[in-house]
Amino acid sequence: MGSITLRHVSKTFGEAKVIPDINLEINDGEFVVFVGPSGCGKSTLLRLIAGLEDVSGGQILINGKEVTAAAPAARGLAMVFQSYALYPHMTVRNNIGFPLKMAKMDKAAIDKKVEAAANVLNLTDYLERRPSQLSGGQRQRVAIGRAIVREPSAFLFDEPLSNLDAALRGTMRLEISDLHNQLKTTMVYVTHDQIEAMTMADKIVVLNRGNIEQVGSPLELYKSPRNLFVAGFIGSPRMNFIEGAYAQSRNAKTVGVRPEHLILSKESGLWTGTVTVAEHLGADTFLHANVDGFGPITARVDGEFGVKHGDRVYMTPDESKLHRFDDKGLALGNAVVAA
């Protein structure tokens, strides 16, 4: 059991209103990712849920019970910190067992649980080591282990992968997703990396300046972003935004087209441009081209599409997948595509 409800939650630090007013429902067993640029309030929101910061207004409910004023430990949540926050003077065994020791569990039971967690996380051989003797990925797993043994009603992750290198990040992403499938416990995960959000989340909460821009499944957000911010934030490479005559011809202030929704040709098309850079990834190629009349546009094409710097290319947008936005940046009638 682990549902979390935020009702009109706000937070101010002195003069600064970091979170003006947030309402959010996190269901039991869901993997929810808070994503947004740095300074958007996503970490603050997580810390409010954890109880590490006091809310300035509103209510927080866990499993329907009001916990707004409860101490962090009393909320039944476990947290994995960005710096892992392992206790440097304790062995891995004692680190993982610390919350159980605090709960006054007897030693044999602690050992059993710690060893079970270590087994799940491949840490069995490292139980007697100190954090300083472990690699980044192992430390990360110890931090997760310390969270698991408490059998919390929800896990909170604060940018847990940002200190790891790219390859390890990919592996840990899988491991955390896998863990979620095994435990089926609610997870709230904060990141600034939209790839982590897209690949792991059941539900993404896009935050900007302390406000929720949109809540939805990864594909909902990808297919029908509610506004320019979400459209630009979700998806990689970024969506192309086109203004001016072409947008007006589609009855919009701005038109957005994703790089993968451009049809490329060497012979003919609606727009013509000159390739500035071609990034060959193997299967795909990202083409950065200067399109006559608009300026820089990014397109995603098949790896076999052989062009190089200076070549002329023709492109046509897939009209059925165009995104249209009004002068306030809000999406206009999602007429073009069905989710």
Binding site: A50, P72, A73, M79, Q82, F98, R150
Partner: peptide, 12 residues
């Protein structure tokens, strides 16, 4: 500070 917060989350 995160270590102190971690210990608080852990129920200390």
């Amino acid at each position: 500070g995160e270590i102190l917060e971690a210990s608080r989350m852990d129920g200390a």
